[in-house]
């Protein structure tokens, strides 16, 4: 009798769980910024999982088999696009055996739709390193372009769960308004430093620099995905000194040694900046991450 009751309770619990889950749109975002935006738009009607935890490189999220069941059961996969996730997503999607999420299908939510990429290479020859054929994919560090991602996510959610359209649209507008307000704040904070030059390890910061009137001076790595040579470092240090570049940005997933050396040799300030939420402590949301980035720049430049 006890066993029967236990089984009945177990079945009821399983059914209950299934029903609760079935009511929600299951979304897998590749990176934490997209996961945060999706949570903000989807609210209580979505269940969002992120493949990255925030501390990974955007191109180096480990291809864990445990991601496969997540993708297998998802309704949407939300991605940066512009080939940002080329190192892990295509193989994971193939292994997931989920036809809804394959490229070109409605469940494949490419947030770069509607964004004009910077740095589209004229040639995709590997002599230029691990180039992105569609252009620089790091547009999420521009909060204005992140709004396009928000709209794309909203459209995809509406398409898959039209019964919640009003909620999604309302959530989207509320979030966009919040982002607009923060953008005004960030713009004001960085306004006095327009024209300031900076370098970083990888080319994450072109969109950010363009948006806030800073000058992206160059990368520490020789080419995308290729570590710097001694000659490259020497040339970079020399030109940074000549052009008075005051900031060296190190993304936390790259080794500190070379950026620290360059900062020391040029007299620039070294700052560690996340490239997605969770990259450093207390940056668990997109807005918190951008807050951190802007305030880090301001603090460094006010020194």
């Amino acid at each position: 009798m006890k066993m029967k009751l236990f089984l009945a309770a177990l079945i009821a619990a399983l059914l209950g769980t299934t029903q609760v889950n079935a009511a929600k749109v299951r979304v897998v975002a590749t990176l934490t910024d997209l996961a945060d935006l999706t949570r903000n738009v989807g609210g209580e009607f979505v269940e969002v999982r992120s493949l990255a935890t925030g501390i990974e490189d955007t191109h180096g999220v480990p291809m864990k088999p445990s991601f496969v069941p997540l993708l297998n059961r998802a309704d949407l996969v939300v991605l940066v696009g512009f080939d940002c996730e080329h190192a892990f997503l295509p193989a994971l999607l193939e292994a997931s055996k989920n036809p809804k999420l394959q490229p070109g299908k409605p469940g494949y939510v490419d947030c770069s739709k509607g964004i004009s990429p910077l740095e589209v290479p004229k040639s995709t020859d590997h002599s230029e390193g691990d180039v992105h054929p569609f252009g620089n994919p790091h547009y999420m560090l521009d909060p204005v372009l992140a709004k396009t991602a928000v709209r794309n996510i909203c459209d995809a959610l509406v398409a898959v769960a039209p019964e919640h359209e009003a909620d999604f649209v309302k959530n989207r507008d509320v979030y966009l308004a919040k982002l607009d307000a923060k953008f005004v704040e960030w713009q004001a904070a960085l306004a006095p430093f327009k024209g300031t030059k900076f370098v970083s390890y990888h080319g994450h910061w072109h969109y950010f620099a363009q948006r806030f009137g800073l000058v992206y001076y160059g990368t520490i790595e020789l080419k995308p995905g290729v570590d710097p040579t001694a000659r490259h470092i020497e040339g970079l240090v020399s030109s940074m000194k000549a052009d008075h570049v005051p900031i060296v940005v190190r993304e936390p997933q790259f080794p500190e040694k070379v950026p620290a050396l360059i900062a020391k040799q040029t007299g620039a300030t070294l700052i560690k900046l996340p490239i997605m939420p969770g990259g450093v402590p207390d940056t668990e949301t997109y807005i918190a991450e951008m807050d951190y980035i802007v305030h880090s720049f301001v603090s460094a430049l006010q020194k």
């Binding site: 990255a52 501390i55 990974e56 997933q253 790259f254 080794p255």
Partner: peptide, 9 residues
């Protein structure tokens, strides 16, 4: 061992 942060290195 594939450290999430610096697995490329």
């Amino acid at each position: 061992y594939v450290p999430l942060r610096e697995n490329q290195f």
